[in-house]
Design a protein around this nucleic acid. Sequence first.
DNA 1: ACAAAAGTGTTCAATTTACACCCATGG
DNA 2: CCATGGGTGTAAATTGAACACTTTTGT
Lengths: 232, 232
Amino acid sequence: MTDREHLYLRLTVDLVILTVRANDLHVLLIERDNEPFRFRPALPGGFLRGGEDLRQAAERELAEETGLQGTSLHLEQLAVYDSPDRDPRGPIFSVAYLALAPDLPIPTAGSDARQAQWARVDDVAGELAFDHDRILADAVERARTRLEFTTLATAFCGPCFTIGDLRNVYEVVWGTELDPRNFSRKVLSTEGFIEPTGGKRVQEVGRPAALYHRGPALTLHPPILRTTAGTE
Amino acid sequence: MTDREHLYLRLTVDLVILTVRANDLHVLLIERDNEPFRFRPALPGGFLRGGEDLRQAAERELAEETGLQGTSLHLEQLAVYDSPDRDPRGPIFSVAYLALAPDLPIPTAGSDARQAQWARVDDVAGELAFDHDRILADAVERARTRLEFTTLATAFCGPCFTIGDLRNVYEVVWGTELDPRNFSRKVLSTEGFIEPTGGKRVQEVGRPAALYHRGPALTLHPPILRTTAGTE
DNA sequence: ACAAAAGTGTTCAATTTACACCCATGG
DNA sequence: CCATGGGTGTAAATTGAACACTTTTGT
């Protein structure tokens, strides 16, 4: 901090792990057990260690918190957060990662003491430690646009899913309602988005739905645009 | 926890400054005058100093290289580049920023010894120091999608421009041709994209074109999509 | 008058939207 | 039989691409 030219600093990696549970978008949060912000909810994360690159650190945190191998989840870099006063301990920048996960059985309590829990995104606005409210908001916005232009909605689903499941992802993440009939057609007519497994899922009520898994396509041509009409 | 819990490291900030000159997309490059990669072309950038945040560092570099106040240009964070072997001096991460500039008079030689020059983006592929080829490629791709969904094409133009100028930006950045007539209508029908100044610009040849300046809108509804048709 | 670029009008095709209607299942 | 959700067909509305044609300048 004294040497003007070569500043050495510490980096943290913070994870925004999103999932769709029932009818709400959820984020995985931990309760901090150290100062600063002790006992406040926060995004899982930690300091970068020697020999790691950022992605490895993100995958390590992910495994610690969820027990999942990072390779099975979508994990993308969001941005660096660098407000000088974001951490009371001093200038510590954070690289945020966004992970999209299917509805996991439970955030495996087998983590390191601090208990991880799913929380409704709408419930935690303004509650989080550091600048994590802003990081979360940015992450949700990123997820929303990812659904428009990529096939990542499937990252919220398990290996097999119905078109109704997929539509539910769009509706929950976007907070809108979609016409089931047109949605179905749109998804099916997009080459490589989803592929039929041949199976069917019988539900509590109604006609059984065909099951699909992810196709090879990564981007959507054409995109499935939100009709944000008006929000400028 | 392991013995190497808190890794301290240095960060650099690298700038991809793009502009549209004549009929090609150009990037501002410097020739390195220090090892490593001495005498090789590279993106302008440097180490983060104490007391700076990343944006301040980016604006400082920008001012040093171009003489421009950063506030007048679009400047956005791209990503962190963290390959362990990206810098032979050791683990040094770089935060890349993308700047869009109008065709500047010249990269003001009044900088710090190392001469900055515009280079055609297509000419420098594979030539750059560090992982700057990749950073440049990512930046160009980001700029391309920015034109689709935001009003940032105007960031390549001066305070006053014609619709033809704006179309030229799209054509050069995308590497495609656009129908002047449909483009004109599309731009004019997008609320808040451009606003008439009332003036006209007489050119060497042809009918004088009306002049416009930026409007208040930041995003395009609807977007102006590239017809990438087929590239998957 | 002619070339060149700006700008307008019109047509046709593609896409989106809305919704009537049928299908398959549990109660 | 009915309720419920899955899925198909189709017509109207909107959007986009193509292009004939007019306008305004310099030479």
